[in-house]
Computed example of a mutant assay.
Amino acid sequence: MPRMHRLQYWTSNMNEHKSFPKRMQDIVNTYIKQEQSAHSPSENTADQQQETAPSEQHPTAGDSAALEQRIIELEEQLATVTAERDELREKYVRTLADMDNLRKRTEREKEQLVLFATERLFSRLVEILDDLQAAVEAGKQSRDYDAMLNGLEMITTKAHRIYEEHGVRPLEAREGEPFNVELHEALVHVPHPELPEGTIVQQVQRGYVFRDRVLRHARVVTSAGAHAADGASSEQSPSSQSD
């Protein structure tokens, strides 16, 4: 039996049996109070620790099995996602390489097309040079100007045909047509008694068009209108009268 319990047992017996001396009862009671004051803090602290300490929950066998199964499922999902990522990355790298190869191949093909078209054009233009050289040699040996003129006309016709085969056509500016800044280049602006202002009086040099692009604008003389012509004639009349 613990000491405190024994003391409490003696105290109860002393209270029941009045035969115990008064002095003995006082000593026992004092000792019990001292023991209680010495043990009460630790007992209260133990009680508080029991009240405040959280209850520990130990996992059961079923919880451990479910957790392990969930970990296995997550590992499988991670492996699947990793494999898909690696596959997509490989496809992306291959696609970039294919696009780069396509770009390089397209550039090479464009260069080859330009070279091929240029080669075709110059292979035909050298024929014109051959004809011109032959005309020069013929002119040195003969003074038949009519024959030389016919030969030059044939060479000119052949040159126009070659240009047309490659998409080049002449741009003609006719008298009386409205001046178009996209097709014509005005060299001079002169008064004209019949043609209104802003119309073509004369073509000085023929223009050329390559497909839909202007290679060279037609160079023309444009009209300043009848009013300018009247002003010019009125300015000249006094001088003519004085003469």
Rank of each mutant, 00 (worst) to 15 (best):
Y92K: 14
D230P: 08
S12G: 01
Q112M: 10
L102G: 03
V214N: 03
D212H: 03
R89W: 04
Q202I: 05
L67D: 05
Q69P: 04
G167N: 07
A134F: 06
I200W: 00
E185D: 12
Q25H: 11
Q203K: 01
E111G: 10
S55Q: 13
L88S: 09
G198L: 00
V114S: 09
A218G: 01
T106K: 03
R120W: 13
Q112S: 05
D144I: 05
E68H: 07
E197D: 03
S237R: 13
T95S: 10
E76H: 10
E84M: 13
R206D: 00
A229W: 12
A79Q: 15
F20K: 08
Q202T: 13
I32K: 06
A159D: 10
Q69C: 15
H189C: 04
Q202N: 10
Q49R: 15
S142L: 02
E182K: 09
D230H: 04
M24E: 10
E51Q: 15
K18D: 14
E107F: 03
E177Y: 00
V201E: 01
R103H: 10
H189Y: 15
S240E: 14
F179I: 03
H217G: 14
L152Y: 11
E185C: 12
E172K: 13
D63K: 11
L132N: 06
G198M: 00
D98P: 00
V168F: 11
D86G: 04
T156W: 14
Y92G: 12
Y31E: 14
R23I: 09
A147P: 02
Y145N: 03
F116N: 03
E90W: 07
L183K: 03
V93K: 04
E90P: 13
E153D: 02
E137L: 05
E84S: 09
A61E: 10
E185Q: 06
F122H: 07
A134D: 04
T30N: 01
Q50G: 15
Q36N: 05
Y208G: 00
K22T: 11
Q69I: 12
S239N: 12
W10M: 08
L132R: 12
R169C: 13
R124D: 05
E172A: 02
L121Q: 09
Q34R: 13
E111K: 12
E51T: 14
M154A: 08
V209G: 06
V209C: 06
S223R: 02
R216I: 11
I27M: 10
H17A: 09
S55A: 15
K110G: 08
S40Y: 08
L125T: 02
A135W: 04
S37D: 10
L183S: 11
F122T: 06
A229Q: 03
E35W: 00
S42P: 11
A117D: 07
A232M: 05
R108K: 04
S55Y: 05
S233D: 12
T80H: 03
P54R: 09
G151R: 07
K22A: 08
F122M: 09
P191V: 02
R70N: 07
G198W: 00
V188Y: 13
R169H: 07
S42Q: 11
I71E: 14
M4R: 11
